[in-house]
Amino acid sequence: MATRSSSSQPAVAVRGLERAFKGGIKAVDGLDLEVPEGEIYGFLGPNGAGKTTTVRILVTLLRPTGGEARVAGHDVVSEADAVRRNIGVALQEAAIDPLMSGVELLRMQGALHGMRGSQARGRATELLERVGLTDAGGRRVGQYSGGMRRRLDLAMALVHRPKVLFLDEPTTGLDPTSRNALWREVRGLNDDGTTVFLTTQYLEEAEQLADRVGIIAGGGLVAEGTPAELKSRVGEPTLHVDLAEGADVPAAREALSAVGPLVDCRDDARVAIRAARGKATVPIAIRALDDAGIAVESVEVVSPTLDDVFAAVTGSTLEGAGDAGAADDEVAGVGA
């Protein structure tokens, strides 16, 4: 069973963390971050940014070559066993033996965490029900769909009621329905008090789930905050007004400039202004255009996205940076 440490300690505390591989490649380079208890922390970055290396260090599968990391109040190197007692881990690709059944895997996981037979059996039944796999529990995992395997992986990570749950890209390759189901489960776990450290390369996932987001690039943290905070750092929302055919564009620009600063717009039939108050700007802008006798076709408020944030702090878009580095590939070669 997980042991609870003092609530004043952060669930995850990382200071100057480094991990270099052969050839001097630094997958993690001076990383600092802190995750308070009870938070869902989204660790966002493209492939090769150092996400997986960081998680493998935090779950004691990899030793850092510099800096320090503490999980649930314990050092990941000198108190690795204590860390392992307090964490649940669902790594990328759900490494689950396809020849074993869900029940067998959960019972084995229970034994690994010191549970007796009857205790492990009871917990397996409880968790299968929780993740909606009761009927499939006796079947071999090789017959499970990708979503079912992920849910079982999550259940296995929860057997010993961990204090901190590490999910490494938990929804990669899942269909939207399975993804939503997993998100619901993660939110439920967090509601129960579990701290969740979630790595993802999906912006939507980070936005939907995370209380705070850390963006990693080149092995270091380049931005951190709530999704709203991060987006606000990039800029204010923009109000886009599509004018009706034949409308007086200069007059529209003049009318809207009284509502907010004008923004350059490539489309001749469109006028855009900064909308510091977001959607509340819409009725004011409509009234100003109406007073000027200008017909409007449509109005849209566009807010900055996390992708905009990523582009601003790294100089590239998240999707476009997917093959940027080979550091995490190096991890796969090193193994456990």
Binding site: V59, T60, L61, D81, A82, R84, R85, I87, V89, L91, E93, A95, I96, D97, Q109, L112, H113, G114, M156, G335, A336
Partner: peptide, 16 residues
């Protein structure tokens, strides 16, 4: 096979 498939990591991440 366990090492290649990643299952061994699951065992290594357990407090045993």
């Amino acid at each position: 096979s366990d090492i290649e498939g990643g299952f061994f990591d699951r065992l290594l991440a357990a407090p045993v």
